[in-house]
Amino acid sequence: MSNSTEEYLEALYSLRRETEPVSTSALSKRLNIAPASVTEMMHKLAEKGYVKYSPYHGVTLTSKGYRSAEKMTRKHRLLERFLHDVLKIGNDKVHKEACEMEHALSDETARAMCQALESPDSCPDDGQLIPACDLGFSSCEECRKWGQDNPEKISKRKSSVVSMSDLKENQEGLISFIRGDNNVLRRLLDLGLTPDTKIKVCRVSPLKGPVEIACRGSRLALGDEIARNVFVEKVAN
């Protein structure tokens, strides 16, 4: 995958909306590239199966494209964290630096970086969520435990996951992965958020407040810093 493909996918990832396609003009503005070149690139990406493109309507990521885009975004934001937290690079510079470095970052190094930074959940400059990894773990503890394994051997997640904080009211999901330390994990397990448990978001509060979910017949309020680290497989309803 070329660097520019990766940049396009990342842009599409951050511009994506639930239902509407992304317009090529928005994309061209974001990447600061002429609309003609964007259109040309979209045809190429569509050929490779990363996006669905219908002229005059816009672009949507295919599930293959979504996964690649999410992975790139994850690497980008992990790098920002690393540059900021470990190397103490200023917030004004981390984005540009990460943009350059992300294309060279291997999956293995990204995983090691995530472990070393203790599974960070947001990037330092604008607080955006770092997406979950695509490894088939249900908690970070597993990743730490089976950390010596050859990364090629670790199975990947079967379907993509979204953060609970990105769900809308009345959306449902199956608990797939809980990021973070064991204390939070254990408390959530005790309350019934075990892998594959169905949850429904009942209420999303404004200003990054907590979400209210229904789980095993009970209702729980989870603060944003908890909810954004609970990843679910969306259930169509």
Binding site: N182, L185, T194, P195
Partner: peptide, 25 residues
């Protein structure tokens, strides 16, 4: 247990308890 369940030990135990609770309920 962790080999069988592919989960941390405490998560495996919690999962089995909830599985039974779910079944009984």
């Amino acid at each position: 247990t962790e080999e069988v369940y592919k989960q941390p030990r405490f998560a495996a135990v919690a999962s089995e308890r909830y599985a039974l609770a779910n079944e009984i309920a």
